[in-house]
Design a protein around this nucleic acid. Structure first.
Length: 289
DNA sequence: AGTTGCACCTGGCTGC
DNA sequence: TGCAGCCAGGTGCAAC
C-alpha cells in the first residue's frame, strides 16, 4: 500500500479521530517491528494528547504534548484501522477483519475509538523522537524534496539529477532525491511523461544545469499522478484498505504498473516488464523514450 | 563516493 | 489437494 498517496490517505483518516484526543492506553504486543520499539514506548505515549499529525516523505509524524513526536513508517504491509467503541459482533458487511495475529499496536483513545496498527511483514517501525531533534534526525534530514510542495518543479529535478549516474527509475526511487515516490508511482509518472525508465537521469539536465523540457514534463507528471491518487483515496493492492475499511480506487487507473503484455492506451504498443535494480519496472516501449 | 544487491518477513498466487 | 517457488507497496547496509 504505502507510497506517498497511501500514507497521505492514512494521515487524513487518522487525523480525523486523533487530533486533540488523549491516548488513554497503548498496547504494544511485540518487542519489535523492523526495529525494536523505543524504551518504555507505551508508557511514554500513555496520557499524551496528539496536537498534530503530519507527513514527511512516507513518514507519519504525530506531535505529542510531551515535546516528543511519534514517527511511524508503514513499510511494505503496514496499515491502520479505526474501531469505534462498540466492537463486539460482526463487522459491517464489506469491511475487513484483518487477521489479529498481525495487530502489533493498539492505541485506545479518550474518545472510545481504537486505532490498530497491523503489519504482517513487519517492515514498518515506530520511533519516539524529541521535537527539538526531529528535523536533525537522519531519517528526516536526508529526505529529498516533497513532490507536492510549491518548490517542486523541473528545475529541482534537474538539480537533484545532475551528476547522477543512474537511470530515471533508480533516481526517482531514491528517497534522498525526491521523497515519497515508490515503485508504482515512479512507473506511472514516467509513463505519463513519456520517458523511458531506462534513460539516464542526467539526460534531463542541460549543460548549464537548467532543466530540459523533459524534466519539466516529468515534474508535472509526478505531481499530477500523486494528486489524482490522493483524490482517489490511494491504491488498494492485495488486502490493503483505507482507515475505515474501505478501498482506495487508484489501482484502477494504473496505466502500466502490473499491466505487462497489455497494450498501451496511448500508442497501442505492448507494455513491458523488466527488472531494474531488483525491482519490477513496467513501461511502454513504444511511447516512453 | 556512488551504485547495486541482498536481507529483513509473511502471505498470496501459480504451476507442477 | 499439496507444496515448492516466486513475487510483493520499502529501505538500510554490505559489497563492489
Amino acid at each position: 500500500m504505502p507510497e506517498l498517496p497511501e500514507v497521505e490517505t492514512v494521515r487524513r483518516g487518522l487525523e480525523a479521530v486523533l487530533l486533540g484526543a488523549q491516548l488513554r492506553r497503548v498496547d504494544q504486543r511485540r518487542p519489535d517491528l523492523r526495529f525494536p520499539f523505543p524504551e518504555r514506548f507505551a508508557e511514554r505515549l500513555t496520557g499524551r494528547i496528539v496536537g498534530a499529525l503530519r507527513r514527511r516523505a512516507k513518514y507519519l509524524i504525530a506531535d505529542l504534548d510531551s515535546a516528543e513526536s511519534l514517527v511511524m513508517h508503514l513499510g511494505m504491509s503496514g496499515s491502520f484501522r479505526i474501531e469505534q467503541g462498540l466492537s463486539t459482533g460482526p463487522p459491517p458487511s464489506g469491511m475487513s477483519t484483518k487477521d489479529p495475529a498481525h495487530d502489533h499496536v493498539v492505541f485506545e483513545l479518550s474518545t472510545g475509538a481504537r486505532i490498530i496498527y497491523n503489519d504482517p511483514r513487519r517492515f514498518g517501525f515506530m520511533l519516539l523522537i524529541s521535537r527539538q531533534a526531529l528535523a536533525a534526525h537522519p531519517l528526516l534530514r536526508s529526505a529529498g524534496v516533497e513532490p507536492l510542495s510549491d518548490e517542486f518543479d523541473g528545475a529541482i529535478l534537474a538539480k537533484v539529477f545532475a551528476g547522477k549516474r543512474t537511470s530515471l527509475k533508480a533516481a526517482l526511487l531514491d528517497q534522498k532525491l525526491v521523497a515519497g515516490l515508490g515503485n508504482i508511482y515512479v512507473c506511472e509518472a514516467l509513463y505519463r511523461a513519456g520517458l523511458s525508465p531506462l534513460r539516464l537521469s542526467t539526460t534531463l539536465v542541460r549543460r548549464n544545469g537548467a532543466p530540459s523540457t523533459r524534466a519539466m514534463r516529468l515534474a508535472h507528471a509526478i505531481r499530477e499522478v500523486l494528486e489524482e491518487a490522493i483524490a482517489a483515496g490511494g491504491s488498494s493492492l492485495r488486502d490493503h484498505r483505507t482507515i475505515n475499511g474501505g478501498l482506495g480506487y487508484f489501482q484502477h487507473n494504473f496505466r502500466v504498473y502490473g499491466r505487462a503484455d497489455n497494450s498501451c492506451a496511448r500508442c497501442g504498443g505492448t507494455i513491458k516488464r523488466v527488472t531494474q535494480s531488483g525491482r519490477a519496472t513496467f513501461y511502454c516501449g513504444g511511447c516512453q523514450r
